[in-house]
Design a binder for these strands. Structure first.
Lengths: 329, 329
DNA sequence: CTGAAAGCGCTTACAG
DNA sequence: CTGAAAGCGCTTACAG
C-alpha cells in the first residue's frame, strides 16, 4: 500500500505537521526530532505525493507550452530551452501540439488552464484575438511566444521581423535584383504579417515593381514551399526571400534539385533555425537571418515564472533581435 | 474567487454528488435536474478543478516522457507522435530532457514518478540496469523507448538494429570496399551496442580486415561526428557506416565541405531520421536506413496506456523494423 | 519547540 | 432518482 505522511508520523512518534515541516524546512524542528522523522521516512521508503501537495497548495509547479508544430526544429529547440530553464527552477513542462489548428489550440487552452498548470506559454495559431482572450480565465498567467496579437493584453516574447527583411530586400536591390519573390508562412500569423509588410515597404522604398504575384504563402509546416516556388519561378524572379525556417530548407533543396546555382542563377535570403543542416551547407551562398531560438525559449521561461509571481504586473512585449548573416560570413 | 462544485450545487438546489454525476455521466440523473445543473454551471462559469479531481481519483491522465535530447529531430518527431496518440486518448504529456546525462535522468524519474504522472516513457541514457530499476517504484507503469536493457524486466519498443547494419556492410563488401569505417553513438546505449555488434559480425563474415581503429564513437548529440571522421579518414576508409541520425547529417556536411564525392570517393551508409533535409539532398548518393520514428512514438503511447490498464501483464519487447533504402531509390 | 484539527475540491460507497 | 458524508494526502493557521 501507499505510504503516507501519517504512516511516517506514527512510526516517528510525532505529528504530521512536524513531518511536513521537517521535509519542507518550513519551521524549526529540533535535531533529535528531525533525526526520528528521517529515519522513519527511510524505513518506510516514503515519498510525498506531488498530486496531494499541489492540490493542497494550489501550486502545480508545472507550465504548459502550446506549440504549433513540435517536429519543426525551431520549436523543438525552443522546447528544449524552455524545459531547461523551467527544470532549473523546479518546474515541469507539459507540451501540447496544435499542428497550426485553432480548434486544437482552443481545446488545449481549456484543458490545461483548468487546474493542470500554473501558467501557459502559447505560440498561438489563432487570428482572432477576442476568441483567444475569451479562452483565458481571468488572471491566469499567460505569455505569448514568437507570435503576438495587435491588442497587447498579454506579455510576449518574439523576434524582430521587420528590420532583417527590410534590409535584405535593400541589399538585393543594391545587387541589381529587380523581381524579388517573397515566401511567407501562414498569412494569419503576426510573424508572417510583419515580414510581408517589411518586404512590401522595402520594395516600394527601393523603387522596385510591386506585384502581388511575387508574394506567396505556405502553411508554416512541412511540404508547403514547393508550389510557392513553382509559381515564383514562373514569375522569373531573380531573387527570393523566404521568411520561414522550414520552408527555407525546402527551398534550398528544391532549387538544388532543379539545378539552380544559388548566388548565380538566383539570389536567396532565408530565415533559418540557427543550427539547420542546410545552413551549414549553403551559408556561403545565401544571406541568412538567424533567429535567437534558445534565447527565445529562455526568455519565455523567465517571463512566465515572473507572471506567476506577479500576475497583475503590466503586460509588456519583449522583442529579441535576429542576426543578419550575409553570404559567406 | 474560485467557483467550486459546492457553489454549483447550491445554486442548482441539488447535492454535490448530483453535480458530479451529471458532469461525469456516472449515474442516472433526470432530465430536469440535469437542466438545472447545467444552467448553474453556465451561470457561474464553473470548470471542474483537474488537480482536485486527479488527487481524488489517483488518475492524473498524464504521462511523462524522459527524452535524451529534445532538439534532436528524431526525438522531436517521436514526441510529436506520442503527444498525438496520448491527446487522442485524453492524456497529457510531460517532457523531461536529460541531454544524455544519467544524473538528470535519475532526478527526473524520481520527480515524475512521485505522483505527477500515471506512467513513464523512458529513452534511457543509463548503462546500469540495477541502478535504473531501483528508481522505479514497485508496480509503476514504465515503457522503455528506443533503448533497452539486457535484463528484460520492462516492456519496450525499439527498432531492429542488427539486420540493416549487417546488410549494409555486406553490400559495401560486395561493391569491393575493403576498409569500412564505423561511427556509433554513445557506447553505453543498447542501440549503439547492437549496431556495432552487427558491423563486427558482418566484417568478419565477409572476410574483411577487423580493426578496432575503424570503429569510432560519438556522444549521440550534436557536433561529435567530426573528430570521429578525421580519425577514420586517416585510416584510409573507402566506406563509412554512420549508425546515428544526427551524426549522419554532420558526416554528410563534413564530407561535402572536404570535397568528397559520395559514392565515388567514398561510400556511405547512414541511419537517418526519415525526413532529414540531408536525406532529401543526398539520398541518391548513399544508402539510408530509415527508422520508423512515428510508429515508434505511436507504439510507445499505446504500450504505456496498456500498461496503466494492466500493470501486471508480462513485459514484452516490441521491435519495429527499419527500411533499407539503397542509393537512388 | 510541537500538536490537534481544519480544509483544499472533488468522487463515491452507502442509504433511502 | 438523489443526498449526506467520508475521505483522498497533504499544509498551515491556531494554540500552547
Amino acid at each position: 500500500m501507499k505510504v503516507t505522511i501519517s504512516d511516517v508520523a506514527r512510526l516517528a512518534g510525532v505529528s504530521t505537521a512536524t513531518v511536513s515541516h521537517t521535509i519542507n524546512s518550513t519551521r524549526y524542528v529540533s535535531g533529535e526530532t528531525k533525526e526520528k522523522v528521517y529515519r522513519a521516512i527511510a524505513e518506510l521508503g516514503y515519498t510525498p505525493d506531488a498530486s496531494a501537495r499541489s492540490f493542497r497548495t494550489g501550486k502545480k509547479k508545472t507550465i504548459g507550452f502550446i506549440v504549433p508544430d513540435i517536429s519543426n526544429k525551431f520549436f523543438a529547440t525552443m522546447i528544449e530551452s524552455v524545459e531547461n530553464y523551467l527544470s532549473a527552477h523546479g518546474y515541469h513542462l507539459i507540451i501540447a501540439n496544435t499542428k497550426e489548428n485553432p480548434e486544437r489550440e482552443e481545446t488545449n487552452i481549456r484543458l490545461l488552464s483548468a487546474g493542470l498548470v500554473d501558467g501557459l506559454l502559447i505560440a498561438s495559431t489563432m487570428e482572432d484575438f477576442s476568441r483567444f482572450e475569451s479562452l483565458i480565465p481571468a488572471g491566469f498567467p499567460v505569455v505569448l511566444v514568437d507570435r503576438t496579437f495587435d491588442t497587447k493584453r498579454f506579455p510576449s516574447v518574439s523576434v524582430s521581423n521587420f528590420q532583417p527583411i527590410y534590409r535584405s530586400v535593400c541589399r538585393l536591390a543594391g545587387k541589381g535584383d529587380k523581381r524579388i519573390g517573397m515566401i511567407g508562412g501562414l498569412p494569419r500569423l503576426s510573424s508572417t504579417k510583419e515580414r510581408i509588410a517589411a518586404y512590401q515597404e522595402a520594395v516600394a522604398d527601393c523603387g522596385l515593381p510591386q506585384d502581388d504575384l511575387l508574394i506567396r504563402y505556405g502553411n508554416s509546416m512541412e511540404n508547403s514551399a514547393q508550389s510557392c516556388l513553382d509559381e515564383l519561378l514562373e514569375q522569373k524572379c531573380d531573387a527570393l526571400v523566404v521568411a520561414q525556417g522550414l520552408m527555407a530548407s525546402e527551398t534550398v533543396i528544391y532549387l538544388h534539385k532543379k539545378g539552380f546555382k544559388l548566388g548565380e542563377d538566383i539570389d536567396l535570403v532565408t530565415f533559418v533555425d540557427y543550427d539547420s543542416d542546410i545552413n551549414y551547407l549553403y551559408s556561403n551562398q545565401m544571406d541568412c537571418i538567424i533567429q535567437p531560438v534558445e534565447k527565445l525559449g529562455e526568455t519565455a521561461g523567465e517571463l512566465i515564472l515572473q507572471r506567476i509571481e506577479t500576475p497583475d504586473a503590466p503586460a509588456f512585449e519583449q522583442v529579441l533581435t535576429s542576426t543578419y548573416q550575409p553570404c559567406g560570413m
